[in-house]
Nucleic acid binder design. Sequence first.
DNA 1: ATTTCGCAAACTGCATGCAAAGGGTCGCTA
DNA 2: TAGCGACCCTTTGCATGCAGTTTGCGAAAT
Lengths: 226, 226
Amino acid sequence: MQLMANAVTHPVGTSAERVYDDLREAIIGGEYTPGERLRTEALAERFGTSRTPVREALVLLEGDGLVELEPRRGAVVRSFDAADLVDLYEVRAILEARAAQLAALRLTREDLDALDATCDRAESMAGSGKVAIETLIASNDEFHRVIVEASGSARLTAALRTVAGIPRPFKVAFWKNGAERTRSLSAHREIVAALRSRSAERAESAMRLHVLTARDFLIEVMGERH
Amino acid sequence: MQLMANAVTHPVGTSAERVYDDLREAIIGGEYTPGERLRTEALAERFGTSRTPVREALVLLEGDGLVELEPRRGAVVRSFDAADLVDLYEVRAILEARAAQLAALRLTREDLDALDATCDRAESMAGSGKVAIETLIASNDEFHRVIVEASGSARLTAALRTVAGIPRPFKVAFWKNGAERTRSLSAHREIVAALRSRSAERAESAMRLHVLTARDFLIEVMGERH
DNA sequence: ATTTCGCAAACTGCATGCAAAGGGTCGCTA
DNA sequence: TAGCGACCCTTTGCATGCAGTTTGCGAAAT
């Protein structure tokens, strides 16, 4: 689902890293519901390893804000309420806006073409009758990932990891909504245009707007549910 | 070796957390020099525990950017060059400015008085002949910590942990410098004034200026060393 | 029937055993 | 003598044993 991102988890890398990646996917993918308890033994069996690397992965996921790890009481999947999501998206808006600002001056022509290609694919997909939500989500992740990495700031990238994990149900709700989908894809084009003209300020503003727009949509959706 | 040595040593908190805190202190304090290898067995002996919680602490410290953890090659203390510090301070400037912005609307009168009291102590200390650098550093950390926590944003706090760890030698260089010390303490007063008048924008700008000023000083110091 | 208490099973977190990979050293070759 | 390769010791990362704590269930008392 993330295409070529980490297709090859095997060449080098510890068992704990594999568990971390897979478990992260599973949690974001909604395989474990918020509040659910994550028992190390069961996870160890699932991932074909022992409890030690599982524990290490849980510690990492706590750092990402995806699980809560209380001493002597184990790990539970973190639950998100509206306030959490707003908090998360506002920090993300700041950091990704900065990333876009930096990326505007550093993206290569090839990177820019790749971003446009990602937009093309997402739009033609959205334009056709059937919408593969999984692919849209993957496209979106890829789009943001490229820009963040192009910022060239390791600290920014690390900081963004603490606000990167959004449960898939929210993403699905987002991309299922036709209006938001159109708006979001159009925002991506705006961002690429700004990046292409090397306008750091414009890229920053466009990215901030994009993330804050998503925030507002999620507030709305959360509001309807209660 | 372990026996019942630590009967009441952990009323709350795991052994791994203690190792994390202490080792973090030790690294920031310069007890381990950049590039130095951190062997788990030696650390386990030092902290009176086994290798498992030590490894857990190392994983956490990698998340904080204080150690590098290469598979099968162990952990080494991360070294900072000028570019790293600039990167770190620029992300920190963004995040702490945002924290100040939020804190301006949330700090209680007691918090504000406590911030002023911290400034008082630091200034009277700096005014007197002998300057206890350790205490100045502690005051500064406390000042920033109070504001970040008052932001009320868990994600912001978490993100700041990824840029919080600055080796003490840099801090010492900073607070040893009379001009920077004066400037910094004055900046703290400015920030408190902005916070007290609930001016979010002013607090944000003041904090950004404060952190970026520190960045520039460190660039200068690093430049002189090479 | 509801609440409280206690017991037992389950689970967490730490300690330690063990196989495999790395780095260093020494000897060998040219 | 310099360069190269093989071997050994150290160290890591995973597996598992173990003790202490939490949790869930059931019985007793009100």
